[in-house]
Design a protein around this nucleic acid. Structure first.
Lengths: 240, 240
DNA sequence: GCAAAAGTGTTCTTCGTACACCCATGG
DNA sequence: CCATGGGTGTACGAAGAACACTTTTGC
């Protein structure tokens, strides 16, 4: 509500869960730490909030620094804030996590405290506890859960796709993020019927086999209505 | 991601959107500021995060201090974090907002920097911009939106009710929070059929007129399935 | 023509909506 | 016995699941 007379010993950072789909796998941006603590371990990209910077600005700046991604493409939203007293052994650090979604991007570049940066499969980063530095496994898990949930009722999945995409590409996104298999016919009807969800560009794809698919771009709808229903997972996925 | 060598000049607080339903009105807890800035204006309750305290702890402590509410009853979740550079004119303050829901409570007590505290109708606090101090109108608006959305697919509405309640009382909560009128018969079926949503206590109410209603308590379900659908608003509401 | 992928139609069932109707109590 | 609200049954339509079937391309 109100600040104290004296400034407490706290630092505020932003951390980023940047998700993309590459080679039929859901991947997150990870950086290798070049300094202690957790030196040599993978972590989520992030950094300090500058004195004259709002939180979304800080997140967008870090995102651009790490990926070169323009803010015009992709999606960025606040995820949650993590501030356990000893989540960073050096001092009290409260971090505001952001979730970013982007189409397949060129390989990231290292910089700052990061010795390296790469797109890592989310499953790999979350497997076997303790791979990620700090509480970043939990943050990544929360980001993944948020993304999965929002695919149901928002156009978020389209942010994983290039500017023009086919219905099948969009369906792949759902299948990969949710880890399920969806019926291509029902999916097609659903997304093409939803008001303002997809806009036909008029273009068509050409491929080796099969009928060419129509190309679409993201429409103006902010909600997918009726929502896409997520089947309970467990089904296997076919090979790429 | 990693803290700096030197601590930046930032303070971290928690602010609370505490919602309750009293006298057929959705109300939020508001405190009157006793010190500048915004002296004499109403604000959301909140305070500093203590050095050895996690964020949810800080929120729960502030909630208990302001309302006397035990953590056993009610609901508390993180809402969002607000950190615009000049949201507090004195210094950089990043605040982590929490959303709390509670059944009708005794009148709150003032304390700390607050000259007074009261339950104020949400509509009143949000009407005519600039009533609330800082960016608290926006925070309250976000909390309201979150609460409204989560009534659809979670048992959140039951936290507005006393430990044992009737289906009609629960329906009133939905109607008041959403500002709509719901069909009592369909509502009854829906909530009583949903798995683990309501548990009959065996008790019954006695009233002046009409058949006594069965009493229920909140079940163990964390999701309401299938979800309650929110009709588009606009309908008037009958008098209390 | 055949394989392969896009896209349409059809059936069955589930679930929301509207509303008629019955139940149980106080006065 | 009647007013008042609690609770059940039923008919209709919208939408999801499953799947047969047609369309349009490359080879």
């Amino acid at each position: 509500m109100a600040p104290p007379s004296e400034a407490p010993d706290v630092a505020v950072t932003v951390d980023l869960v940047v998700l993309t789909v590459r080679e039929d796998t859901l991947c997150a941006l990870a950086v290798r730490r070049g300094i202690p603590p957790y030196r040599g371990r993978w972590a989520l990209p992030g950094g300090f909030v500058l004195p004259d910077e709002d939180l979304p600005q800080a997140a967008a700046r870090e995102l651009a620094e790490e990926t070169g991604l323009e803010q015009l493409t992709g999606h960025l939203e606040q995820l949650a804030t993590y501030g356990a007293p000893r989540r960073d052994p050096r001092m009290r650090v409260v971090t505001v996590a952001y979730l970013a979604l982007a189409a397949d991007l060129p390989a990231p570049r290292a910089g700052g405290d990061a010795a390296a940066a790469r797109w890592a499969p989310v499953a790999e980063l979350l497997a076997g506890g303790g791979r990620l530095a700090f509480d970043h496994a939990r943050i990544l898990g929360d980001g993944l859960e948020r993304a999965r949930a929002k695919l149901e009722y928002t156009p978020l999945a389209t942010y994983f796709c290039p500017p023009a995409f086919t219905v099948a590409e969009l369906r792949r996104v759902y299948e990969i993020v949710w880890g399920v298999v969806l019926d291509p016919r029902n999916f097609h009807r659903k997304v093409t019927r939803a008001e303002d969800f997809l806009v036909p560009t008029g273009g068509r794809t050409s491929r080796k086999g099969g009928r060419p698919a129509a190309l679409f771009r993201r429409g103006g709808a902010r909600l997918l209505m009726p929502p896409m229903l997520r089947p309970d997972p467990g089904e296997p996925r076919r090979p790429p």
